[in-house]
Design a protein around this nucleic acid. Structure first.
Lengths: 216, 216
DNA sequence: CGTTTTTTCGACTTGAGAGTCAAATTAGCA
DNA sequence: TGCTAATTTGACTCTCAAGTCGAAAAAACG
């Protein structure tokens, strides 16, 4: 990736395109080395730009992290499935598949694995509020499942914590060059986790060599 | 906690006791603020000691992190259940309970949630080797379960990744002052995750308000 | 072209934290 | 008590990275 990775040539949205690339690169670097372990020079080098240039786009390093958090929160919210024709369990499964893909995919802004103490109090407040909103939406999906009988009776908050934990952790061990594709991982994770919450007879998931492949 | 927290008064093992306290305090600080986000002064302050004193006990900051990793690896290894009278699923469940308790308990050395790039190549090699050993032992438990029919056919490596992911993530959201006890969390996590892997009719787990409580 | 506006950068200041060391303090023990 | 070894510390250096700024380069535009 060099020089903003030639992000097209629009006059007006140039800036927001560059910002998006910057956030993705920063998030990826933060994920790898941690917030404090990543210098702005690291990020500038990846973009083929000088450190001073970055300050034309972001207020400071802390704000850069904050922006990553905000972008990631929006990205996460989009993964929630609310299709009313599906039961709670299937909505949860689809949400998880989408979520895992979003956080380990090429376009991830995810910075959930980072220590949160790097943000200011006010920034942290906002981020936590947004994250809570996401988690509450997922909890609602679980509650729907409990009500419609597809999900076992449980504490939705705890269930979401567990399920998101396994999902978020994927960013720690997933290697793009590894044997498993992103889609495989997402499907298998969702299948395993949903099975842990499923109430009745388990729905049959698509065949997957990581999990859920029922043939001998 | 002040001044080595009066760790008894043995002549010879004084040092190792102090080291143990130091590692626990350091690990807790690292978990909270990340490796780079934690200064040795932070740690020294918690111990009620000057920064220079720490250098009497550890070679440098990086080595301190390394020692935490080593201690955590040993701690993790001890959580694996190998009771031959139990089937694989139950062994896995007990292992998970013990593991979760070990990482969020008072005596945790756990630093798994940290970025690994802070270690030297050689240190990282050792840590990864130790962690692999632990994960392989857990994979063996899963394999045992698949063989004895208690666990669904699956990729043991992936299963262990998922299960440990959810477990490790607990360190992110668990609050000692929260409503859930460590034991409750450990039991519920293990129950949920094992259910996701269980093959046949699910064993009944002890009642738990977070998960597995089957009564209406 | 020349002029203006946007974008980039080199060179700088600054602060924080890692790591050192000789001196001071404390503990062990005769 | 005095002597010795173990332990602790204040004061120091040094490096690295955040953040600034005025000038240079590059677009935009007439």
């Amino acid at each position: 990736m060099a020089r903003w990775n030639k992000s097209v040539l629009n006059p007006e949205q140039q800036r927001s395109l560059k910002l998006e690339v910057l956030y993705k690169v920063a998030a990826a670097a933060f994920r790898r080395n941690g917030y404090h372990g990543t210098s702005l020079i690291d990020i500038a080098d990846i973009l083929g730009v000088s450190k001073a240039t970055l300050y034309y786009y972001v207020k400071n390093k802390q704000d850069l992290l904050f922006q990553c958090h905000l972008a990631a929160a929006d990205q996460a919210l989009e993964t929630i499935c609310t299709d009313p024709s599906l039961n709670g369990l299937e909505r949860l499964r689809r949400s998880l598949v989408a979520y895992v893909i979003s956080i380990i995919g090429e376009d991830s802004f995810s910075v959930v694995i980072l220590e949160e103490r790097s943000l200011s109090d006010e920034q942290l407040r906002v981020v936590i509020e947004k994250r809570d909103a996401f988690e509450r939406r997922l909890q609602d999906v679980v509650r729907t499942g409990v009500t419609d009988g597809s999900i076992l009776r449980c504490d939705p908050k705890f269930a979401v914590f567990s399920v998101l934990g396994a999902a978020n952790w994927v960013t720690k061990w997933h290697r793009p060059e590894g044997a498993w594709t992103i889609d495989e991982i997402a499907q298998a994770s969702a299948a395993l986790l949903c099975r842990g919450l499923a109430a009745g007879p388990l729905p049959s998931y698509p065949s997957n060599r990581l999990y859920g492949d029922q043939q001998p």
